[in-house]
Nucleic acid binder design. Structure first.
Lengths: 347, 347
DNA sequence: ATGAAAGCGCTAACAA
DNA sequence: TTGTTAGCGCTTTCAT
């Protein structure tokens, strides 16, 4: 039913290869001929079949975008930016959701592999080994994770977490808690490492809680443990958890930031819509999406050994969920000596 | 580099057509042969190339999902559900974002047409004519819109809006306002029609504001007009706008629900995270996504004249943003007589 | 039950 | 500058 290259050839009195050239290498065909072919094509509503083209060129002009959970508010801006960038480069994008499952994830990239020129793995749950393996079958760029020999774009959450802890300490909080994220998350490890080091450096007490699911529910559920820890300053793995904490605190009648200060990570749209507005470490998600797409498309033709791993800057956005710590209370919290790190984490 | 059907044929000592059969019509090949071929294929890491297969069968096993704005929190749950359903049926999905632009939208469906077995148009901005036109090139299902002769899945927002108005009136609010959505939105028209009729029926004053962008910003900006209208009960086109209203009201020191009640539409995840928690008309977005995918896949082979248009039920979820209207104030608002509809809408 | 051959829509040498 | 030919990976008659 739809017009093929042959219909156009017949109708314009040239050979199919000429029609092909008109679309793939216009400079190789005579001006007049080209115009005639173009006119006929337009008239017939002809559009090249990319799949057929891919069969011979080996380039599909598609990419795959695999995320853990489309509905997690962290991802949509990333997906949007990546899709937009890809389309600007004349690429279409398959989006797939793994439901946070590593097996689904692997199946997905295998299933997509033949149909795409590359795959973007966002916050992947697969093992490093597996990622390296699939990286040999199909060009891959990972986002929010560092895997040896695989191109990656990550956020400098270590720096962001450090700034957040310094912010809290600077406000006079001497007892802090880190609400950890999911096991196996590279970002979570980075944050924890940085937070522990910074807490030591600035001499504040720190309680590490986790691992936890990266959800609002888990954040609310952690409020018990937070209260037990005596911390007056909380850094959560992400905004969703921080918002859960806000919620849990509110339900207990604990005021933020008067009694406890809360900081999140990501700066999702939500964080300025809750009350109090959330102080958070902003990660450049849209930029990450665009950069990742460009890195993926750059991989073809290039020397594959150029395994760039780019780190994007983060920034602390101070809003209304952080305030001065307890004044005049020179007494360190009981149980933990000043500058001590108490960890309840199992990971 | 990746194994083809020919490699498998050679390695297992059969003809390519036998290999092909083992994958597409296993019952046509001898048990033994089949096992041998399967083993070799597994061993070689062979996976059928869907694009090549599509070239001859005419079926790509891909669908396109076109939305106005991936980052609008209404869409991610719909995308997630649709993708999940599609994958269960062994389909991959292209996701594309039109940025609310009808021209982009049309280009997108044309570009995708050859690569998919059908397209899902979510809250499309195109004209009805255009939608019908593209519906002739490629199977289409629209979501959140009714177009003659095109299969559709819509939400019963008329019913939802009616319930919302009755809820407000039942609480004693006699002056209401409808904060309209974007021009050209089918949902917006439905809501307005229903709200106007219901307001008349239950005898309350109504001010219609709009059209507006369906954003939180626009909601906040509309607070001026809302105050001028003397309304104490507001129904917004969607939750995002309702949340904007909450925000704007808060900034002026007007308390919700004590002084003004606010109702949204959609029940996005956000609506239970803001304070006060938003009373809203819940629309079954995930179900819409799944249904739309099934309708799309049902279109092949079927009689195309079976243009089903299904309507999904909505439900009012009462939370904390609505409360009793002004008591003892028997005096109707100045300027408008009881039961009157004042419209500031241009549409 | 299997093989042979043709062809889906297109591009890419190679000739002319 | 254009036509000829071959073939990408696969399915599908048609024979055998």
């Amino acid at each position: 039913m739809p017009a093929t290259i042959r219909d156009v050839a017949k109708a314009s009195g040239v050979h199919v290869s000429t029609v092909s050239r008109t679309f793939s290498s216009p400079h190789l065909v005579n001006q007049e001929t080209r115009n005639r072919v173009l006119a006929v094509a337009e008239n017939l509503g002809y559009r090249p079949n990319r799949a057929a083209r891919a069969l011979i060129t080996g380039r599909t002009h598609n990419i795959g975008l695999i995320v853990a959970d489309i509905a997690n508010p962290f991802f949509p801006p990333l997906i949007k930016a990546a899709e937009s960038q890809a389309r600007d480069r004349d690429y279409h994008v398959f989006v797939a959701d793994t439901n946070e499952d590593s097996v689904t994830e692997e199946k997905l990239v295998q299933a997509l592999a033949k149909q795409v020129d590359g795959v973007l793995l966002c916050s992947p749950r697969m093992s490093n080994d597996l990622i390296e393996r699939v990286g040999r079958d199909v060009p891959v760029v990972v986002v929010n994770r560092l895997v040896e020999s695989i191109p990656a774009v990550v956020m400098d959450v270590a720096q962001g977490a450090r700034t957040a802890i310094e912010h809290l300490a600077g406000l006079g909080h001497s007892d802090l808690a880190l609400l950890g994220g999911p096991r196996g998350s590279w970002t979570n490890r980075e944050i924890r490492r940085s937070v522990i080091a910074t807490a030591r450096a600035v001499g504040v007490n720190l309680t590490v809680l986790g691992p936890n699911q990266p959800t609002e529910i888990a954040g609310a559920a952690a409020v018990d443990a937070i209260c037990r820890s005596n911390a007056t300053g909380i850094l959560a793995y992400n905004d969703l958890m921080a918002i859960g904490v806000l919620e849990g605190l509110h339900n207990r009648g604990i005021r933020v930031p008067e009694e406890i200060s809360v900081v999140g990570v990501d700066d999702i749209a939500l964080s300025r819509l809750v009350r109090p507005k959330l102080t958070t470490v902003a990660t450049p998600t849209a930029a990450a999406g665009r950069t990742a797409v460009d890195m993926l498309l750059a991989q073809r033709g290039e020397d594959r050994r150029t395994t760039a791993q780019v780190t994007l800057h983060t920034e602390l956005v101070v809003r209304d969920s952080t305030g001065p710590g307890p004044r005049a209370t020179g007494v360190p919290a009981s149980g933990t000596a000043r500058g001590q790190v108490a960890s309840y984490a199992k990971e």
